[in-house]
Design a protein around this nucleic acid. Structure first.
Lengths: 137, 137
DNA sequence: CCGATACCTCTAGTTTCTAGAGCTATATAT
DNA sequence: ATATATAGCTCTAGAAACTAGAGGTATCGG
């Protein structure tokens, strides 16, 4: 039996966040000690690790919920789980592309700004005037 | 003189968001019509375009505020503006690196999952078991 | 001058936590 | 057995950057 603090240390999920996940229905209400403190089993540990992993991968809480509910029907085909992962992959790729454009633009801005006065600062000018930008965003 | 709707159309910033920026002190309180509606000047349009542009680049509202205040002292050296852009560039690079690791992992997950049943679905298994991951995250 | 549309203020909700107040349980040291 | 330190409890509010809705008023085209 693990306390909430043990669980937190083992999974890297902060204590208030664990309580929050409980509130959101991601983990079920655990047993309690005589003094009303939460006591977790190994299954809870695994479930929380799953959630943590999903969140690290950027899945939303809703997506994780869906995956949990899918995983509780092991007989069904896993196209649902596959779809969630695939959709998320698409999102990730879009985000990377956006950020790369941004990186490119910030590089240009920074490299043009060599410590003169604000009056002709490239950072300010670039933000004021979209026309100075390289690509679209 | 532009109404808030005109301003919104020209900058692509939604009407409630413009009001929100005003509240946050990013734009100053504009003149009002006789009937108490906001009327904007061309200077306001430029300022809002600046803000929009900064937000598109992922700058926080605080960072933009800082840039605006810097730009109002054109005599000072622009190291401050340069620093903000540089720090942000660092953030962006970190985020890209994270997302790439993530992309990689999702690709692996998706490609291993070919529509069998949940029981041996790679998506679920990968989330449950960090050991199946390729890299660190 | 009527009616449609746009505007006004104010409040509350979104998402994913995080922080704090005020109080109680548990574990350890003496 | 008791004192103390740490960790736990609930509940509320805050952070970021908006977004949505309620209920009411201006403005403008026809």
């Amino acid at each position: 039996m693990l306390t909430i603090g043990d669980l937190s240390k083992r999974t890297g999920v902060k204590v208030p966040t664990i309580r929050y996940y409980e509130q959101m229905g991601l983990i079920s209400e655990p047993d309690r000690s005589e003094g009303n403190q939460r006591r977790y089993s190994k299954a809870d540990l695994e479930r929380l690790a799953f959630i943590r992993h999903g969140r690290d991968l950027g899945l939303t809480i809703d997506a994780i919920k869906e995956l949990i509910s899918l995983s509780q029907h092991p007989d069904r085909p896993c196209v649902g789980a596959d779809r969630i992962a695939r959709e998320h992959l698409d999102d990730v790729r879009i985000k990377i592309a956006q950020l790369k454009r941004l990186e490119h633009e910030l590089e240009r801005i920074v490299s043009h700004c060599d410590g003169h006065s604000i009056e002709d600062c490239y950072v300010i000018r670039a933000l004021s005037d979209h026309g100075l930008c390289d690509g679209q965003h």
